[in-house]
Design a protein around this nucleic acid. Sequence first.
DNA 1: TTGAAAGCGATACCAA
DNA 2: TTGGTATCGCTTTCAA
Lengths: 348, 348
Amino acid sequence: MTVTLADVAARAQVSPATVSRVLNGNYPVAASTRERVLKAVDELDYVLNGPASALAAATSDLVGILVNDIADPFFGIMASAIQSEIGGPGGRAGGERLAVVCNTGGSPERELTYLTLLQRQRAAAVVLTGGVVEDAAHRAAMDARLRKLTEAGTRVVLCGRPPAPDTGAVALAFDNRGGAQELTEHLIGLGHRRIGYIAGPEGQTTTRHRLEGHRAGLAAHGVEADPRWVVHGRYDRQSGYEAALELLRRDASLTAVVAANDSVALGVCAAMRDSGLAIPGDVSVAGFDDLPFSVDAVPALTTVRVPLAEAGARAGRIAMGREEAPPGGIALVRGELMVRGSSGVPRG
Amino acid sequence: MTVTLADVAARAQVSPATVSRVLNGNYPVAASTRERVLKAVDELDYVLNGPASALAAATSDLVGILVNDIADPFFGIMASAIQSEIGGPGGRAGGERLAVVCNTGGSPERELTYLTLLQRQRAAAVVLTGGVVEDAAHRAAMDARLRKLTEAGTRVVLCGRPPAPDTGAVALAFDNRGGAQELTEHLIGLGHRRIGYIAGPEGQTTTRHRLEGHRAGLAAHGVEADPRWVVHGRYDRQSGYEAALELLRRDASLTAVVAANDSVALGVCAAMRDSGLAIPGDVSVAGFDDLPFSVDAVPALTTVRVPLAEAGARAGRIAMGREEAPPGGIALVRGELMVRGSSGVPRG
DNA sequence: TTGAAAGCGATACCAA
DNA sequence: TTGGTATCGCTTTCAA
């Protein structure tokens, strides 16, 4: 029915072993035989059986990418960067690896389940992106799974989350604290003194680190830090919308708002518009290099550029083993934060 | 070394066949034995070998999703919708399927290569999204590949591209013409008469259909259609930026611009800002339900809602065989267009 | 309801 | 440089 390696071998009048060698190209084969084999492959329109070869070779050409939600442009860019790095068709590496994108939705259980599924597939590598819930039990479970993976020969990269010592996973951390602090100081530099902050979900690493950075920024300049000026929410637009209204309800005299990520910031914009709060012409936005819409869709802006896609790309490189783990196992990369500050605005 | 099914069988004191049955759950097994097996699985921390089982069963639990670029929010949303539909962990289906996301970058060759790679993996289903190059040779090659796939038992869905008769693939078409016409008429309804149009890459189905719809809209209302008011570009932000400038260079008296998709429209916004063209307060934007940023990031807008994610979800459903192909093999869904019109604006 | 055993289709080691 | 072949780990008849 379907064409197998043996069929090709028969047609080319060689052994299956030889065909395999030609196909994998990692073994010396006479030019003439190679010719014949390739011709047979072509004539029979032969397609290798992935599972069979993965079974025999004990490794597949699948690379897992865990993201919070692939519909979020942030993770889309990460996934895209990693993909071009691992080199499927069109990738610079020229390999033939396929990217398995897994939406965890931030759920610890799903995260674990996906890791098991990827282990089941004997994935060549797994890249975990974004923050993680700070929970001892979950962390232990994760570490166990990660260790299993690396022991089974899968390369594991933590991209934007804390290192996991003794698991064999390589970590590529983002400097969430530093990024947050820098951005808050940017607003302070613009003259703001009453700055609201919309944080991510409580209990997540990124949430905590960014908030710490924000506070550090305020402290460094002796700026007031009213606890009522901090609201927690999810990392999405709707949450940003609601949080912005809540902030203004608590204190309408705020002159700037820091949103924990771009999607949240867009929600803030929407809230200000819908609630009849004018968006001033001299609004200032500080965001990523990589989420162009956040920067370009709002007029009259100021940008603090924060390279990020490069982090994803680098993670891919590490996943594929083309780069060693950086000294200490960690590389610091600029964070993934966005600040939205409006001069002299909103008063409800 | 690694735990196998046999190990579990030994520990549970049953045959491998029984363990397999328990794990797959599609076969009657005594409750007591099942207990023992599951206990053994747990104790040994056994993880099924995917490739082995795929080889034996001649099918995998991988679902391929071909997109232009996963970094584009449009495709991110599509991929996300399809994923939740095919039911990995957390999906409603509760299955254990993994999504393989493939970035084609619009390249016909990559498209073909990826299809081969997915065939190699014995993918359970493949969903192709977005438009396709209108080229006889490529079409023939694609059809051949698609036929191979369906013959091998892979379910194939064309989502947003023309049907491919006799390939066994199910098509879920977007009404690009209708959507474009509707949106252009929306602008006409707002009083615009000098409307620019930024089209996608020449030679693609979506490009042609949308442009046709736009022209039909103009014609239906006797509105002028100056050929100079149409510029072609890529479906990305930068292209929109350049095209907008080009349009205004050609004719600064335009009062509205239709962009062939959201990313392009964002580029238009940026161009207007950078070139010092004021963005009026009463700008009107018509876009998707699903790309919130395009709608929310621009103040004072009017929206024409065009459902789209539902198409992706439906594609997933069809891919998984939970829904039959609609009558005639085609379902029409609202298009994926965005209009950006500005009243009484830009003059350079 | 359970077991025995024959594949599934490549890979890679050992010879030649 | 090439061939023979055991092996990978699971699924699935066929019997019992």
